[in-house]
């Protein structure tokens, strides 16, 4: 029988860099990156809707790539770089994606938003001006039940414009 108790948890200790800050963290070794972030690093911005890789709410950037943190073992994150929604702002300034999502209705209940934002950020870094089809494809791994996605697409497109404006300003 599979749910019967097994040996008491051993803890794991790793060092990882989250949003540019290196930390050492101690956690129960069965935990996924999602649990480590939320429960052991006080970063609850990353959400979960299934914990099985079926919804996209827990997406984070791991070594620069969007992945689902619910299916990454904490013990496999030693020495790696993680970026979560908490790391999108620069100081107190919103990232253009955050601004656009807030302004254009890209976030309603806000629960899928962190996963979408980090995934979209990676897209903008890789492709300066993505097409609607590219946005659609990249966000096909993030379920949203509120918006019908259209205001999300528009928010990403607006963020591209705002990124350009910020560049021009600086």
């Amino acid at each position: 029988m599979t749910a019967t108790p097994q040996p008491q948890p051993s803890n794991a200790r790793i060092t990882l860099t989250v949003n540019g800050e290196e930390s050492e963290v101690l956690f129960a070794s069965y935990k996924t990156l999602l649990e480590v972030l939320r429960e052991d690093m006080n970063l609850p911005g990353t959400k979960h809707g299934c914990e099985l890789g079926e919804c996209g709410a827990c997406a984070v950037l791991l070594d620069g790539q969007p992945v689902l943190s619910c299916l990454v073992l904490g013990v496999e994150c030693d020495g790696r770089q993680v970026e979560t929604v908490e790391g999108l702002m620069e100081g107190n300034e919103l990232h253009p994606l955050q601004e656009a999502f807030a302004d254009l209705g890209g976030a309603q209940c806000g629960y899928c938003t962190p996963g979408i934002l980090v995934t979209a950020k990676h897209l903008l870094e890789e492709v300066g001006t993505p097409s609607r089809e590219q946005i659609r494809e990249v966000l096909a791994g993030n379920l949203c039940r509120c918006t019908g996605y259209l205001q999300i697409f528009e928010s990403v497109e607006e963020a591209v414009v705002r990124c350009g404006e910020r560049k021009a300003d600086s």
Partner: peptide
């Protein structure tokens, strides 16, 4: 921009499971 927009795009909105 909705009044809770900033909280939602920064991951700061507190949902029940975020409470510790």
């Amino acid at each position: 921009r909705r009044v809770d927009g900033r909280a939602k795009v920064t991951g700061k909105t507190v949902y029940a499971d975020d409470i510790v």
